[in-house]
Design a protein around this nucleic acid. Structure first.
Lengths: 162, 162
DNA sequence: GTTTTCGCGCAACTCTGTTGCATTAGAACT
DNA sequence: AGTTCTAATGCAACAGAGTTGCGCGAAAAC
């Protein structure tokens, strides 16, 4: 009757415990949700998934997410819709400085492209010091690309409003 | 007694006129502000600069900016502070698909790195179709880099809260 | 100069995220 | 197990960015 696959829950619990701070239901649950997701989740999505189990306050979710990012258990991505999205941090706590993301223009899904091979050596004006590089590729994900193409086709036949 | 350098104002007026839509004081003024700025401006900054002349409603500024972007006279950038910033679009209406920006972590200033040399060929999972690439380099701009270094030094001596 | 209609101003609203404060519950210690 | 201490939670109220609806005013078409 556990609402979350035990594996993610246990991994989350372990990760929270390792920080030395308090292991609360809320922290574990939110982190478990992030670990289970294969894409970056908005606060709204996280709140929804977490509240299927017990209840959790909106503000608590915000604060837990803030805590998780400050402890490098998650990282946040600024979408172009003014909404933060969150990922469970990879197991490597070091490489927090060269994220690359893919955002689907159709379904809005954001995934992490961990192969941050690009983004090296961008030419800057003199006097400028680079610290982080954020690269976002936008386009159509594997799920939406065929659908979008089909939609374009049908729109070409009868073009209707709304 | 004109509040804006005539050059920018005139260029703005011309650009608006070319779209075929109505040439209003508001559209011209906002575009002139963008043309005059050498960096991306937030809505707040734009509103401030524009209101030094006559008055202009908050909402109108939003709508004008939306209109400008949809007519390719400006483009907007999502900052990591959840605030849109706006640039006058370059004179080339084509290259709307590979922006590169620099955001200063100290003063928050955003400038356009038009040499979008980077961002080519990011490896994507199969089935994914890239459409746009957005690259943001964060760091310290030429103005802030020395100041930030000095601040770090003095903070090392006496550390204080807020 | 009159008419038409697009765009502006105003007010009220939504949505994301934050702050202050009283209460609850980890976990450390008997 | 019970006590105690304090960090986290929940609640309510707030703040900032951006949006929507609607009547009026002013571009531009006639």
């Amino acid at each position: 009757m556990t609402p979350m696959t035990p594996t993610f829950h246990d991994r989350a619990e372990d990760l929270v415990q390792r920080t030395g701070a308090r292991v609360t239901r809320q922290r574990v649950e939110v982190l478990a949700v992030l670990l289970a997701a294969r894409r970056a989740l908005s606060h709204h999505e996280i709140e929804g998934r977490v509240n299927r189990g017990a209840g959790m306050d909106r503000v608590t979710v915000y604060r837990v997410l803030e805590w998780l990012t400050s402890h490098h258990l998650a990282h946040k991505i600024a979408g172009d819709d003014r909404v933060w999205r969150f990922n469970a941090a990879g197991d490597e706590p070091e490489r927090t400085h060269a994220h690359a993301h893919f955002k689907c223009n159709d379904c809005g899904e954001v995934i992490c492209l961990d192969e941050a091979t690009a983004a090296r050596s961008v030419p800057l004006p003199s006097g400028f010091h680079p610290q982080e590089v954020e690269l976002t590729v936008k386009g159509l994900c594997a799920g939406c690309a065929p659908a979008a193409a089909a939609q374009r086709r049908s729109r070409a036949h009868a073009q209707h409003r709304h």
